[in-house]
Amino acid sequence: MNPLLLDIPLQIETERLILRAPHQSGDGMIVNKAIKNSINELKEWLPFAQRVPAVEETEMNLREAHMKFLKRDSFRFLIFHKNTNDFIGTASLQGIDWDIPKCEIGYWMNTTYTGKGYMTEAVKELINLGLNHIKFKRMEIRCESTNVKSRSIPEKLQFTLEGTLRNDDLSADGCNLTDTCIYSIVS
């Protein structure tokens, strides 16, 4: 089947969260504010967060993500609290290989909302979407070996740690070699 013909929901709900594709004007301002508030934590792990981007840059990034969603190249979701509409973070199905088919899950959080299980809840729903709706045969989470918070999510969700690639990547600031843990779940 051609992936362009797949019906992928633009919005998904969990018990506490709404995950929706970034398609509304003004999403950039909301996401940019979270990056700004969380920059000290994010910059340790994410190359894009080495500086606070301009709101316009974030808005452009989200519009590009929406185009990739429509083209079925990747599926980024903005995560909001269902009751308060507070922005919690993003989670994505990315690095898609439709020939297998497989993908990688990526995520980051607004620091204000860490430690409450929100990202685990969001990723669990993306696993359901990926394995049961899209029919991926493999889903991966890759993260730096020292990123304990990020590693806890696949571990809670019963992914298999397939291995650690030594000296596999550069740190977010580009200054040091880092090890990458690869977790997977298969159908």
Rank of each mutant, 00 (worst) to 15 (best):
N85D: 10
F48L: 02
M60K: 15
T84V: 00
D86Y: 03
N110Y: 09
G163W: 12
E140S: 14
N40Q: 13
I88H: 04
L46N: 02
Q50T: 03
I105A: 00
N132L: 11
D7M: 05
E64R: 08
T164R: 10
L126W: 00
R166L: 12
S150Q: 10
T90F: 00
W108H: 04
T114W: 11
D86T: 01
Q24W: 11
K124F: 03
Y183I: 08
G115V: 07
S187D: 15
S25Q: 15
H66P: 00
L19G: 07
E140R: 11
L10A: 06
Y107D: 06
S92P: 00
I88A: 04
N132Q: 13
R142I: 14
L93Y: 01
L93D: 00
T180K: 09
Q94N: 07
V52G: 05
I100G: 00
F48G: 03
L157S: 12
E144K: 10
Y113L: 12
S25G: 12
I18R: 10
I96A: 02
L46Q: 01
L131A: 07
E144C: 10
L161Q: 10
E64G: 00
M67D: 11
S38D: 11
L177C: 05
T146W: 05
T146C: 04
L6S: 02
F159Q: 05
W108G: 05
T178L: 04
F87S: 08
T84W: 00
T114P: 11
N85C: 08
N2D: 03
L161S: 06
K135I: 09
T112I: 14
